[in-house]
Simulated scan of single mutants.
Amino acid sequence: MEQRIGSSSQPLKGEPVTGAGFDPAFIPGLTGSAAQGEAEDAKPAAEAAEPAEAEGSPVPEESVPEAVDSAESADEPAGEGPVFEAADRRARIVADHKGVRLGLDAEECEFTWPEIAAVETETARFGKRFTVTVHTPDRRWYPIEIEAASRAQFAEWEAGMDAVLDAYFESE
């Protein structure tokens, strides 16, 4: 008897192939891994310089990142308002005036405050795991678990997350 690995169902003819199984960009807030970014950056410098020279662009490439940095600094300063950060050896969560960023190993996703329907925190009954779940308006949720050094750290993390949510999250 022959066994196959994977789903045996195929899309119907004429039906578009969509979903996170076929296109990871289908999930809002999900960004590519670091390996994808490195593949794009691996182009030779000569190839990257050719389009700028062909267009006759008077702006050198070195000044472009500076312009991006100054545009980001035009936003609200990062030092204002509360910021929540928690991380362990694999996972990281940052919540500030921009929104909520979750990271696990090399994968990251970012949610701006208008993209968030709810943020839920939960502590494990046993153990030292602190779970933060970001819910989106399209009924998707993205949980991440952070391992605390001790259970006493849970109260500090809950207070920090509450301060950020009170300052930036507007419930309707």
Results as ranks from 00 to 15, higher is better:
26 F>K: 01
41 D>W: 04
114 P>A: 11
60 P>F: 01
164 V>A: 09
52 A>W: 05
145 E>R: 15
6 G>Q: 05
45 A>E: 14
95 A>H: 01
22 F>T: 12
74 A>S: 11
10 Q>A: 08
24 P>F: 09
151 R>Y: 02
1 M>L: 10
14 G>N: 06
17 V>P: 00
75 D>R: 13
17 V>D: 10
160 G>T: 11
138 D>C: 04
55 E>D: 13
165 L>D: 05
168 Y>D: 02
159 A>Q: 15
120 E>Q: 13
101 R>V: 10
29 G>Q: 04
66 E>S: 08
121 T>M: 12
87 A>T: 11
150 S>H: 07
23 D>V: 04
36 Q>K: 09
60 P>Y: 05
159 A>W: 04
163 A>G: 06
160 G>D: 10
36 Q>W: 04
116 I>M: 09
96 D>Q: 03
140 R>W: 02
86 A>L: 13
152 A>W: 05
94 V>N: 03
168 Y>I: 02
76 E>A: 15
33 S>A: 12
5 I>W: 06
33 S>H: 05
57 S>G: 00
134 V>G: 04
33 S>W: 02
99 G>P: 03
170 E>A: 13
32 G>F: 08
159 A>H: 07
98 K>W: 00
137 P>Q: 09
11 P>Q: 08
86 A>H: 02
46 A>N: 04
102 L>A: 02
82 P>D: 06
22 F>V: 12
171 S>E: 14
80 E>V: 14
108 E>T: 15
167 A>E: 10
86 A>T: 11
164 V>H: 02
144 I>E: 06
137 P>S: 11
58 P>A: 04
155 A>I: 08
96 D>F: 03
29 G>A: 09
141 W>V: 00
92 R>K: 15
41 D>V: 07
47 E>T: 04
115 E>K: 11
113 W>P: 07
39 A>H: 01
129 R>A: 11
51 P>T: 05
160 G>R: 07
130 F>S: 01
28 P>H: 10
113 W>N: 11
130 F>M: 02
3 Q>L: 14
31 T>E: 13
108 E>H: 06
24 P>C: 09
84 F>H: 15
136 T>W: 03
70 S>Q: 10
53 E>H: 11
112 T>R: 15
34 A>S: 14
59 V>W: 03
38 E>K: 13
68 V>N: 02
30 L>Q: 11
